[in-house]
Amino acid sequence: MITFFLTVSIIMCLLMLLSMYRALFGPTVLDRLIGVNAIGSKTVVLLLLIGFLYERVDMFVDIALAYAFLNFVAVLAASRYFHKRKGLYEESFMD
């Protein structure tokens, strides 16, 4: 079972790299935000899996819960910040 968890964690890290592409090269700021949000939601699962691998789930589940909260607040704050930013419109046609 531990081997299975390890495999799943490695696949999850590779998926995070895939989402990282969007976070690095996204045409607009909001595309980067989507990438960061996707990475965060994968990190929650990854933290739980790491907890099972180290057999300290009681500790890591709290960290995962706090990370889920933090991810949500970060996305809300960032999207409020770019609310009325000029230039996003032109940016979307720069290919």
Partner: peptide
Amino acid sequence: SIVDAGMRAGL
């Protein structure tokens, strides 16, 4: 919230 930000920026 992300959709709203995009809508207000006029994408």
